[in-house]
């Protein structure tokens, strides 16, 4: 059994544990490479099916190719797609940079608040999220099964222990548990797996005119990197050589020291 097999088997195990324990489950799909791999793993776990809704939090600032890709895959993979959006904030124009909100405030309104409202409206008690420990410091602190309280908050200082593949599956009414089946994967593992399994990803990841996206988010806050990698194997080669962190192009993280930590403690993905 090689490394990708091990990663895959562990993720399938986690997906199935969650499916066995939660009645009202959903999977967050950001259209990015990680959550697309997560969807693929769900189909592995449930033998070709995705037996729960797939939720996309649409800030309306996503790069247009992402939305096209989303709608195409939803049709091809027969997904039950739920789109969540903070229409109130968008109508009032409370966004960055036009609405004089900071990047972090904009993320809070359009992503975190929209997510919270969607989860509450649908009553999901378990939510799959495709985050990985190697992305950045606060995600490294995560558990596979991570409880969120009534205010959506994550108390990373007082998390239940998690060991021997026994997970926190009890929760109080009004709270939910985030489930992170990709927690043990790295960015490189993700691309190697995409290559092996031939998983479709948005074209934005591939170099056009010398630039490509390494991490995808909203158009105003996500930058591209200089890169000639125009295929999955070329991306893998590039990542093996790089010593620059993956989220370096995500401007909201850099707005202040601890900005991303704050966002996550409040309930960001």
């Amino acid at each position: 059994m090689d490394n990708l097999d091990k990663l895959e088997n562990q993720s399938i195990f986690i997906l199935r544990e969650a499916f066995a324990k939660f009645e009202n489950l959903a999977m967050l799909w950001s259209i990015g490479k990680d959550s697309s791999v997560l969807l693929w793993l769900a189909r592995k776990a449930f033998l070709g099916h995705v037996p729960f809704p797939v939720v996309h939090i649409d800030t309306s600032y996503k790069i247009p190719e992402m939305i096209e890709f989303r709608d195409r895959m939803a049709r091809e993979w027969n997904l039950n797609l739920v789109v969540g959006q903070n229409r109130g904030a968008l109508e009032k124009g409370e966004t960055f940079p036009l609405g004089r909100k900071t990047r972090v405030e904009c993320c809070t309104l359009l992503k975190k608040d929209a997510l919270q409202a969607t989860l509450e409206a649908k009553g999901y008690t378990g939510v799959f999220v495709g985050i990985r420990r190697d992305e950045e410091g606060t995600r490294a602190k995560e558990r596979y099964f991570s409880p969120r309280d009534k205010n959506f908050e994550w108390d990373f200082k007082d998390q239940p222990p998690e060991f021997w593949d026994q997970f926190t599956t009890d929760f109080e009414k009004g709270t939910h548990i985030r489930i992170h089946p990709l927690l043990h994967w790295t960015e490189l593992n993700i691309w190697e797996y995409i290559h092996r399994e031939k998983i479709p990803v948005v074209d934005l990841y591939f170099s056009r005119e010398g630039r490509r996206y390494r991490s995808l988010g909203c158009a105003p806050c996500t930058g591209s990197i200089e890169s000639a990698a125009s295929s999955v194997p070329e991306i893998i080669e590039e990542l093996r050589a790089t010593r620059v962190s993956e989220r370096s192009t995500r401007a909201q993280d850099a707005e202040s020291e601890g900005a991303f930590e704050q966002l996550r403690a409040q309930g960001y993905m």
Binding site: R133, D134, E136, G137, T138, A140, K141, F156, K157, Q159, T186, E257, G258, E261
Partner: peptide
Amino acid sequence: DALQSERDQNITIDTSQIW
């Protein structure tokens, strides 16, 4: 000490992973 609060408390408070 990836987290702000760790630097404040001077204690590593949770499991992190470093490659």
